[in-house]
Amino acid sequence: MSENVHTYAQRGYKLCASPFAVTQTAFDQGRSSFRPETDWTYAAGYRYSSQFAGVSVYGYRTNFNNRLQQITSGSAVNPISTVANVGGVTMNGVDAALTVMPIRNLTFTNSFSYDHATYDQNLTEAGTVYHTKGAQIVNYPRFMYKTRLSYAWKGMTAYIDANFNSHRNYSYVGDVKVPSYWLANLGLQYNLSKLTYVKKHTGGVKDITLSFSVTNLQNTHYISTMGENGNPVSIGQGALAYQSFLIGAPRMFFGSVSANF
């Protein structure tokens, strides 16, 4: 159990996505409601490990107060970023992981995360009440899943992994969402220094490793980062027109050679 307080962000105008990187006028309008963000967190977990398996379960509850966030309002042509105290946020979640090692050098790992994080009350902005109570917080998925299968044999290691992110709220009321997506990657690396001939003739050089990997195997089109310019309250404020998304990287191939001295 812990209590925490978050210091005010210190950033200049347009230097980053800080809630305080706004105009002086926007800051003056909301400064009377600014309070340091605090939270109480309660957590409990269990972990078990053996030669063939590892299991962990972790549950938590966090109560935020005075959540300060950057909100984009105004027209789609001339959006304005302001800082708003969105009040309290209640977060209930669980993280679970299972690693299975059925045979030597083969590892199968799975992890699941559920985070039910919602606003405690409605938001009032510029005299208008928006129904944010009970809506999932912006930019954060409720479900995440990751899996990885890897195998090591002598100097070689091969793996394939995948991860899933559920949809995310882009607007505070949740009427604009970013779709969920799957990503998969694979890789192979080999430590040449495990070979007797290479080890004998490389002198002080050790762990010469060849690596090759492919990311985003399916070449999935997805949105990786969102809300870096703030989030609109609702679709009525021109949510679809804001330049506040970053597209995820396409399929990419990487190869490398590394060594230690």
Rank of each mutant, 00 (worst) to 15 (best):
residue 157 T to W: 02
residue 77 V to F: 11
residue 242 Y to W: 03
residue 156 M to T: 12
residue 224 S to W: 09
residue 145 Y to S: 09
residue 209 T to S: 05
residue 184 A to I: 09
residue 39 D to T: 09
residue 213 S to R: 02
residue 104 R to W: 12
residue 178 V to A: 04
residue 235 I to Y: 05
residue 252 M to F: 11
residue 5 V to C: 03
residue 53 A to R: 00
residue 207 D to P: 02
residue 259 A to Y: 10
residue 233 V to T: 12
residue 154 K to A: 14
residue 24 Q to S: 13
residue 118 T to R: 04
residue 234 S to V: 04
residue 174 G to R: 00
residue 36 P to R: 01
residue 227 G to H: 06
residue 216 N to T: 12
residue 235 I to L: 07
residue 212 F to K: 00
residue 52 F to C: 02
residue 165 N to Q: 11
residue 8 Y to C: 05
residue 198 V to N: 02
residue 36 P to Q: 07
residue 89 V to T: 05
residue 107 T to I: 13
residue 146 K to V: 14
residue 143 F to C: 06
residue 78 N to F: 13
residue 83 V to W: 00
residue 173 V to F: 07
residue 167 H to R: 08
residue 99 T to G: 02
residue 168 R to E: 01
residue 81 S to H: 01
residue 76 A to N: 04
residue 120 D to E: 09
residue 75 S to F: 12
residue 16 C to K: 00
residue 23 T to C: 08
residue 2 S to V: 14
residue 24 Q to G: 05
residue 11 R to P: 02
residue 80 I to V: 15
residue 90 T to Y: 05
residue 40 W to S: 08
residue 161 D to E: 13
residue 76 A to Q: 07
residue 166 S to D: 13
residue 174 G to A: 07
residue 77 V to C: 02
residue 202 T to E: 06
residue 234 S to G: 06
residue 119 Y to P: 00
residue 1 M to K: 03
residue 115 D to G: 10
residue 253 F to W: 13
residue 200 K to T: 15
residue 189 Q to P: 00
residue 17 A to M: 05
residue 196 T to S: 13
residue 94 V to T: 11
residue 101 M to V: 14
residue 198 V to A: 10
residue 6 H to I: 15
residue 137 I to D: 00
residue 192 L to W: 10
residue 38 T to R: 05
residue 140 Y to D: 11
residue 56 S to L: 03
residue 99 T to V: 15
residue 209 T to R: 06
residue 8 Y to D: 13
residue 9 A to I: 09
residue 195 L to R: 00
residue 66 N to L: 04
residue 93 G to H: 04
residue 130 Y to I: 03
residue 115 D to V: 15
residue 235 I to F: 06
residue 172 Y to I: 05
residue 127 G to I: 11
residue 71 I to V: 15
residue 128 T to F: 05
residue 112 F to L: 14
